[in-house]
Design a protein around this nucleic acid. Structure first.
Length: 475
RNA sequence: CGGGGCAUAGUUCAGUUGGCAGAACACACGUUUUGGGAACGCGAGGUCACAGGUUCAAGUCCUGUUGCUCCGACCA
């Protein structure tokens, strides 16, 4: 039976999304507009994302730090493009206690400026480089329209800021991190994505270029999932971050920054979940298995405890739902919360030495004979299978929603249905980007550097094309 | 910042011509239950968003304010 609290996905996608967030108790609205309360179920997903990424960053030599939440106005204004990019959406602190401040402080929308300021006094020699810093923190951007996880004013993220002695090293870092994001999205979140470079119009304010990983939601809307920026010496010149190189010559550092956010929780929902609630890929699910005893005979309890302790030992995260609720309630709750595997153990099946497994993603019931079953091996295999199956399904959906456009009419007809990734040739001229956006709100997602143009003609103006670009409607 | 909608119990809402503040779900307690959101009984829960006005009488009518939400433009 469909969950009564959840609007059907095909009926109203936006409402369905909000309903899943609330029904699965991931987050809720608060007294502050645009700032959500991330509830235990939602925060557990974020913690798992953090731990996986954090380990990866550390393997690559990064260390964590914490910078202030407030940025003095003059510091923010040193790099012109960054200020222009973020000025419309920063919040200001203008007084402390009862005293008006001489210089107002901005609440960080991103921390390039603070890292640069720090680096400027802490780098002396090429021997100090590279400095590979990352911070997990919250930032604030005064968005006008807000939605839980996808666009909140305050959000949690990770921002890496690195400085290097050479251009080559910084370029390599930019790419290396993008590889981490791609791996994370594909392998952990089971979200197939495309990777490319942002156009000048869409790149990060102040960056020389931005690498981006773009995901496609079930409804065909694009989501920018992770970005990695190469700054060259732009910021180091603005903030005077210099070092002495091997020839004892003063030189500006080469810099990168990169980040991913709690928005990906929203992405997980919009790629995988359904009308019954949340669906999580096993590798990111905070709880992978739920065991639901039905009735409470000794025989039932014995098997429940046996399975639970074996799963614990194998490092599979499971829990037993032995609350006083009815079995039906527990099934429904496990379902709405997206627990990948449900094990039902009741008297009726035990009579035939059977035990029931239910996959959350497909809701398929699998009956196994207890005597032929090695619980740990089976659950491990099933988790692995679900992970891959979910990825393949998401990939199929993405491929179905990947189109080619040869002219503006093509764009129009594609987005009149379910949109998606729209591949089209582009002349490289910003005017064409602007024109397309004005006509139907389509923006460039990224340039596919390694793919050839379709027919060599810009789909918007018809002139000679320079790049194959993926276009789409974005969150 | 423009355009809609909403505001009454924890939640979703009903509340007639202005006349005792209501239901369902959730919650507490009790009993019986337990294979897809259990049944019955009993109970607690309210500054009707805020301010002002009309009236013998306002949740209801009038004026203003605030908050939330949806749709656009801005954006991870």
């Amino acid at each position: 039976m469909k969950n009564k609290a959840i609007t059907s996905r095909n009926e109203d996608f936006a409402q369905w999304y909000t309903d899943v967030v609330k029904a699965a108790k991931l987050a809720d609205y608060t007294a502050v507009k645009g700032c959500i309360a991330i509830e235990p179920n939602g925060y557990a997903i974020w913690e798992k994302m953090q731990s996986i990424l954090d380990n990866k960053f550390k393997e690559l030599g990064h260390v964590n730090v914490q910078m202030p939440m407030l940025i003095p106005e003059n510091l923010l204004r040193k790099e012109g493009e960054l200020v222009q990019g973020f000025a419309p959406e920063v919040a200001w602190v203008t007084s402390g206690g009862s005293k008006l401040l001489d210089e107002r402080l901005c609440i960080r929308p991103t921390s390039e400026t603070l890292f640069c300021d720090y680096y400027s006094t802490h780098v002396k020699s090429y021997r100090d480089l590279p400095m590979l810093y990352n911070q997990w923190c919250n930032v604030l951007r005064w968005e006008k329209e807000t939605r839980p996880f996808l666009r909140s004013r305050e959000f949690l993220w990770q921002e890496g800021h690195t400085i290097h002695a050479t251009k080559e090293e910084a370029l390599e870092e930019t790419k290396k991190i993008m590889d981490v994001y791609v791996w994370f999205h594909n392998h952990i979140l089971a979200i197939p994505s495309i990777t490319g470079i942002k156009t000048n119009k869409e790149k990060f304010a102040g960056a020389e270029f931005t690498l981006t990983n773009e995901a496609l939601m079930y409804n065909g809307v694009c989501l920018q999932a992770g970005t990695s920026h190469y700054f060259g010496q732009k910021f180091s010149k603005a903030y005077d971050v210099k070092f002495s190189n091997k020839d004892n010559k003063e030189e500006y550092v080469y810099q990168t920054s990169w980040g991913t956010t709690t928005r990906m929780i929203g992405g997980l929902i919009m790629v995988h979940s359904d009308d019954y609630g949340l669906v999580l890929p096993p590798r990111i699910a905070p709880k992978q298995v739920v065991i639901i005893p039905i009735g409470s005979s000794d025989k039932v309890n014995l098997l429940v405890n046996d399975y639970k302790s074996k799963l614990d030992e194998a490092g599979i995260v499971s829990y037993v739902d032995d609350s006083v609720k009815s079995p039906g309630f527990k099934f429904a709750e496990a379902e709405v919360n997206g627990i990948p595997i449900r094990i039902e153990i009741g008297e009726r099946d035990l009579e035939n030495d059977n035990v029931v497994f239910v996959r959350r993603d497909t809701r398929e019931k699998i009956i196994k004979n207890i005597n032929d079953l090695d619980i740990v091996t089976y659950v491990k295999e099933l988790l692995e299978f679900i992970q891959n199956d979910m990825y393949e399904r998401a990939k199929k959906r993405r491929d179905e929603l990947t189109f080619e456009a040869h002219n503006i009419e093509d764009f129009k007809s594609i987005i009149s249905k379910t949109p998606g990734f729209i591949k089209a040739d582009w002349c490289g001229n910003e005017e064409c980007e602007v024109k397309l956006k004005e006509i139907n709100g389509i923006k460039s997602r990224c340039i596919l550097e390694n793919e050839k143009c379709i027919n060599g003609k810009c789909a918007i103006c018809g002139k000679e094309a320079k790049h194959l670009v993926v276009w789409g409607i974005q969150y």
